[in-house]
């Protein structure tokens, strides 16, 4: 027998209103801009998909997209293995645990623009500890002029800021593995690598995939830190999609193309997240059914 309960809709209503105001209505505004042109005076002309075609064909967009993809790829390639390695090395019991956890949590507590400012100052050749130190060692380092230096600075900054998240997620997975697993592996004569590959990795797979997803989305949308440190420079070398978008919308006031670009940007993130999610759940089947049993 099917029971209808219309009260449920009443329960969902506040959330629906909130989402409408915070997400759906702004999104519709952007959609509205993306298909029209304006010369001010609140006059709008229908242009259809013209802006989308223009953005997708523009070299500027391609370059920014490539930079962003490269940045995300590098971030994942560094932070995930590094995060796992640190989590594996962390102590499992004793007073050192709290110490390590607090230490790990510190970078995560700092606001993003402050992180940018810290590294902006830290890397300056004239007064920054890092920049000045490198210069005094005779290393020619200047993130405002050298593309490679700018990239290295941004990546180190992000690694410093966000690897902790991967560490904490992995650590939570690792501590949940019962001691007997390690004991059984020792009796089997399993190597350290085998223990990692066949016990630890399968057991942290779930949290690891969440870490990958979070780090991908965050790094793909990174804005504040490069904006504060390099401002997208030198030249356009660190102009990621987000920075490019803001320059177009706020700097040049090209609302139409900027709106089209936002939607494309949004769809790319949605698509890639969906891909990650699909891979995640298919890899995760064993873990999920295992969870179900216990």
């Amino acid at each position: 027998m099917k029971v209808q309960n219309n009260k449920a809709w009443l329960m969902v209503l506040p959330m629906l209103l909130l989402v409408a105001v915070s997400a759906i209505i702004p999104l519709m505004t952007v959609v509205n801009y993306s298909v029209q042109d304006t010369f001010g005076n609140n006059e709008f002309f229908w242009v259809g998909t013209e802006w989308f075609q223009e953005v997708l064909a523009s070299e500027r967009f391609h370059n920014a997209l490539q930079r962003t993809l490269l940045f995300s790829a590098l971030i994942l390639a560094i932070e995930i293995p590094l995060g796992i390695a640190i989590a594996l090395a962390m102590p499992r019991r004793g007073i050192a645990v709290s110490f390590c956890l607090v230490l790990m949590a510190l970078p995560l507590l700092i606001p993003w623009n402050v992180v940018g400012t810290i590294w902006q100052v830290f890397g300056r050749v004239d007064i920054g500890l890092l920049g000045h130190g490198l210069a005094s060692l005779g290393i020619d380092y200047n993130y405002t002029q050298n593309t490679l230096d700018a990239w290295v600075t941004l990546i180190i900054m992000d690694v410093w800021h966000w690897t902790s998240l991967v560490v904490l997620l992995c650590y939570s997975g690792l501590v949940s593995i019962p001691e007997v697993y390690y004991q059984a592996a020792r009796i089997d004569g399993a190597s350290r690598w085998a223990v990692f590959r066949f016990i630890q990795l399968p057991k942290i797979k779930r949290v690891l995939l969440i870490a990958v997803l979070l780090r991908f989305m965050d790094s793909f949308m990174i804005y504040t830190e490069p904006f504060v440190v390099t401002g997208g420079g030198p030249g356009n070398s660190t102009t990621f999609l987000s920075i490019d978008l803001v320059q177009m919308a706020v700097g040049q006031f090209d609302l139409g193309p900027a709106a089209a670009m936002s939607l494309i940007y949004f769809l790319i993130i949605l698509l890639l997240s969906w891909v990650f999610y699909t891979v995640m759940t298919s890899l995760d089947n064993d873990a999920a059914s295992e969870q179900g049993r216990h």
């Binding site: 007997v180 009796i187 066949f198 399968p202």
Partner: peptide
């Protein structure tokens, strides 16, 4: 030596 525990200890991914 072989040992079996109260918990069911197997390699989860194998």
């Amino acid at each position: 030596l072989a040992m079996v525990y109260q918990q069911f200890i197997n390699y989860p991914s194998l």
